[in-house]
Simulated assay, not measured.
Amino acid sequence: MKLLQALFFPPEQPGGVSSMIPYLQDRFNPPHWEMEMFSLPKRIRNKGSQSVEFHTFDWHEYKQSPVVQKYIQTYRDYLWWTKLRLQQPYDLIHAHHPIVGLVMKEVFPETPVLMSIHSSYERELILNGVIEENGLEHRFLTSIYKELEYRCDRMFTSSRSFMDYLSPYVDHPEAISIIPNGFDEKRFKPVPHDNEVAQLVTVCRLVPAKGLDILLKACAELKKRGLTYVLHIIGDGPIRKELEELAQSLGIYDETIFYGYTLHPEEFMPFFDIFVLPSRAEAFGSVFAEAALCCLAMVGTEVGGISEQIEDGINGLLVPPEDPVALATALEKLILDPAFRYELARSGSDQAKDHYSLNRVVHQLKKVYLQYK
């Protein structure tokens, strides 16, 4: 069976699609399986010029928005690149971004196209202050889901909460299936260690949606309570300077290390003690599963896929979003009680191995793919 895993940009960032798709190829071996990956190089800009039309809504109603114009041009670019580079037929295409799913069905109308929606672009834009809820861009982006339902042969999400999120925007939400992201355990090697000072770590893109301003305020509260720690922030993004300035103004800059973008954070995450990310929204939150496999104690917010991965007090701690005091209290429990911290870490690691192993996801995918043979 000849498969195409169709991504948007090349997988480079920690978490999400990058955590799973590049590692699938080793599990889909010839002669029974042939798998290729395809993505749009970041250098491709403003190449496409083809007319774009959707079946379920008229995008021209939203064309005055620069965000919508950029989305449509990206669609054209991906369409141009796909037609330029892909000619051979496939038995099945699995797309991992809305633009990709729509383009693949346009270029290969007779080929089954399965669509995995890993995150909500419109929610991220709202939380990052780029667009307004229920505004022009929000309505355009949520209309894309019904177009995907119309064109693609099957739709998947990575968590039940995100499936619930999609339900109002499609006609048949009951047809959406859940396949969580899977992780290759060989990438994660827990390391026994005993840090004298608690080492906190977070890994994410530095954008408002990740709630790092709340994390810094919580760390300032920890310092006010007389607790010692080091906070490691791995990742880069448009608000890095703002976060560095906030750390300075809160008096915790000396306790905070900004690493910038790092390609394989899982290689040194095992040396830390506590993973914390107070996201304002997460479709799944792949980085939590990665942290669990590194055997770190986890603290997250009660949102989206995070609350599906963490059972409070069993394999991690959950706190309300937008609450730095509650976050500080949760972190304090783990800083002061290494035995409890280790208990949560072991439980989290065991659960992640059981529920999010790559082998388990590969088994699910193969069963689905064979339905279209």
Rank of each mutant, 00 (worst) to 15 (best):
S49A: 13
F8Y: 13
P30T: 11
H60K: 15
F54W: 07
P10I: 04
S18Q: 08
S19Y: 01
K63M: 15
T56V: 06
S39K: 01
W33A: 04
H55A: 15
F28W: 07
P14D: 04
K63C: 12
W33D: 06
F38L: 09
P14I: 01
G15F: 00
F38Q: 09
L3Y: 01
W33H: 08
Q25N: 14
P31R: 12
I21P: 00
S18C: 10
L7S: 05
V17F: 01
S19W: 00
G48S: 06
F28D: 01
Q50I: 04
D26N: 14
D26F: 06
Y23M: 09
L4R: 00
F54S: 03
P14Y: 02
E12V: 14
E53T: 13
H60R: 15
E53K: 15
Q25W: 09
D58V: 03
K63S: 12
E12Q: 13
Q25G: 08
V17W: 00
A6C: 10
R45W: 12
I21R: 00
W33M: 06
V17Y: 00
V52Y: 01
Q13I: 13
D26P: 04
Q50A: 13
Q25C: 10
K63L: 11
N46V: 05
E34M: 11
P41E: 06
M20P: 02
E34I: 03
P41R: 04
L40M: 08
W59Y: 11
E36V: 08
L7Y: 05
M20E: 05
F28G: 02
Y62T: 05
S51H: 11
P10G: 05
I44W: 02
P10F: 01
M20R: 03
F28N: 03
E34Q: 15
G15C: 03
Q50N: 13
T56C: 09
N46I: 04
L40I: 03
K42R: 13
K2E: 09
F38R: 08
L40S: 01
F9P: 04
V52G: 02
K2H: 10
P41N: 07
E53Y: 11
G16R: 00
Y62D: 02
F8H: 10
L7M: 10
T56K: 06
R45L: 09
P30Q: 09
K63A: 13
L7I: 05
K42Y: 04
P22D: 07
P10N: 07
P22H: 05
P22N: 08
V52K: 05
R45M: 07
Q64Y: 12
F57W: 06
E53P: 04
R43M: 07
N29L: 14
S18I: 02
M35P: 01
S51T: 14
N29A: 15
